[in-house]
């Protein structure tokens, strides 16, 4: 699993020339790396993560996801890649509140067409793995912030992704929960999953093997 960006540009519409979020970003991330993407607010971290996660298109430059040119991929191919190869963990958790924890974890497997019984067994085992045994039937609204983020991690792991993209996963958590979530992500990285994490936290960034620092949409090496 390799991610290769060269001269990546993203300009949001608005105003005469638009608003540039990324102004020529180039880097390569190899399988198994733990990369922290840091920088001030508005420097383009989340935009970069969205492009890496195939949620958004770059306005210019080249992006190769696992050897495939992303710009030539169809929507179906991108959806399949998100479904099978990428897991997302968001700052705001982005769980469906009317579904239970186990149903939230089942969702990606449902889109992958998994068998209902296998799907439930795997979701239960993933919730067990992230320390939520016995809370399978609880909805996100009945869980603490840390627990919700664990559900989100379990959901990200549902289809055994090769890469997890975490957009400030500790941003809404207290220090104890933050440490637990970060430890969990490092644990997953130790299992061979590539982690790309956007963070403001210098301590967490310092623990990462590699940092990509952005400043005004450019790389600051």
């Amino acid at each position: 699993m390799t991610i290769r960006c060269s001269d990546l540009v993203k300009t949001y519409e608005g105003g005469k020339a638009g608003w540039p979020a990324l102004r020529g970003v180039s880097f390569e991330i190899k399988a198994g790396e733990f990369v922290a993407v840091t920088g001030h607010s508005g420097c383009g971290k989340s935009t970069l993560l969205n492009i890496i996660g195939l949620l958004d298109d770059p306005s210019g430059g080249q992006y190769e996801f696992n050897g495939r040119d992303v710009l030539s991929m169809s929507d179906q191919e991108r959806s399949s890649a998100r479904l099978g190869e990428i897991g997302f963990v968001f700052q705001a958790f982005h769980l469906l509140n009317r579904l239970s924890s186990i149903e939230n974890v089942c969702l990606p497997m449902m889109y992958a067409g998994a068998d209902a019984r296998e799907m439930k067994a795997r979701a239960a085992s993933l919730l067990h793995k992230v320390g939520l045994k016995g809370k399978e039937r609880k909805t996100p609204l009945e869980l603490s912030g840390g627990e919700r983020q664990r559900v989100a991690i379990a959901r990200a792991l549902a289809n055994s992704p090769k890469i997890i993209l975490a957009d400030e996963p500790t941003g809404n958590l207290d220090s104890v929960s933050s440490r637990e979530i970060v430890d969990m992500l490092f644990g997953l990285n130790a299992e061979g999953i590539t982690i790309i994490m956007v963070t403001h936290d210098k301590e967490i960034a310092a623990r990462a093997r590699r940092n990509i620092r952005l400043r005004d949409g450019r790389l600051e090496q």
Partner: peptide, 16 residues
């Protein structure tokens, strides 16, 4: 809309 975004992020296609 947000739910649609979440479903798309975890792999739902346009068809789904």
């Amino acid at each position: 809309t947000k739910e649609i975004g979440i479903r798309r992020a975890i792999g739902a296609s346009r068809g789904d």
